[in-house]
Design a protein around this nucleic acid. Sequence first.
DNA 1: AAATAATGTTAAACTAGATTAACTTTTATT
DNA 2: AATAAAAGTTAATCTAGTTTAACATTATTT
Lengths: 196, 196
Amino acid sequence: MIQAKAQPLLEYINRFVTLTHEEETIVLSSVKYRKYLKGQYIVQQGDVCKYSSFILSGCTKTFYVDDKGQEHIIMFAIEDWWTSDIGSFITQSSADYNVQCLEETETIQFSYYGQEELLKKVPKLERLFRMMLERAFVASQKRIVRNFSLTAKEQYLHFKEQYPEIEQRIPQYMIASYLGITKEFLSKIKSELASE
Amino acid sequence: MIQAKAQPLLEYINRFVTLTHEEETIVLSSVKYRKYLKGQYIVQQGDVCKYSSFILSGCTKTFYVDDKGQEHIIMFAIEDWWTSDIGSFITQSSADYNVQCLEETETIQFSYYGQEELLKKVPKLERLFRMMLERAFVASQKRIVRNFSLTAKEQYLHFKEQYPEIEQRIPQYMIASYLGITKEFLSKIKSELASE
DNA sequence: AAATAATGTTAAACTAGATTAACTTTTATT
DNA sequence: AATAAAAGTTAATCTAGTTTAACATTATTT
């Protein structure tokens, strides 16, 4: 039953490493399919992040609530992306972030121990995760650089250009939070851009 | 000859994966020792980053020069840390960042092709790199969150607490650049802290 | 020991973006 | 269709951090 659902995951994996049919079977036997409703949490700040989730459909936001009660969106994730609180997942300690579904969201999930077992059986996947993390780390560093070197307007234009699909699907006030600005200021930026 | 120098690298690796004596020999045969003088560049913006460098002694800064000619420090690295422009290294395309030595710096270097070969011979090291990247990515995400949720003063205090050794060794204006503030404002923060 | 370069400080004027608050538009619920 | 809730806008006031510029201190070189 999971075979049918998990096709996009296998395709994703095969972009990095080539799996035999047997290895694909092992992968599928160590993951679970799970569907969340809009508004549900995949991870909650304070809990241990038990799963690393590959998104089949839908959309999530990862956010942090600071001491002053302010919400800061760290990332969005859509089809073919992964989401989790990696820090919590790899150490199995309590999560710093929340991952919440912004739409009905279908996932394929790797549990921490399931993934460890899987890596023993198919060590080739270490390479997959290594490569995924390289990309994630590079993207994260670039975001830091943009924060320091671009104005809010430039960052917004970059976001629109880099993630047009996400920009369409998500309320503006969440994009403002992702960019680290207020919704009022984003609104001002948009009206400036409109009159240019 | 490299055996004597490379001891800290082997110790570092063994914190993540256990290598046989044979595997250690393979590792050593695929790396090079190189010493840089203060001021020399390990990587230059625009060049292809040929090496991933493990630091035996010394200190480096990784920085980006933006369109307006402004320098933004992305990271420092000292003994037992790795440095490179990963984005450039993994794709062997031109680097976005510079890595410059702030002191005389001794390194052990993995070339791109050397590392690929090494990973074929000792696939166990995929796990090492995967784990290193997990940590690097988590740290990078946390830095983004701090940028968004802390004031400049709070970020400076966090830096001092997290990297006391680095804070001692490096001019204040570079710390200001790392924190994304001006040296004048850091100076003000310090005088406020002093009079508290 | 002087001279120069590098680093750090202080303070006044300025600006990007935050805050507050009132209002409009869109979307979902009954 | 009416109501409520969620999302977005506008504008005035405010503030954290920047800019500019002059000066002070500490290293480095001759």
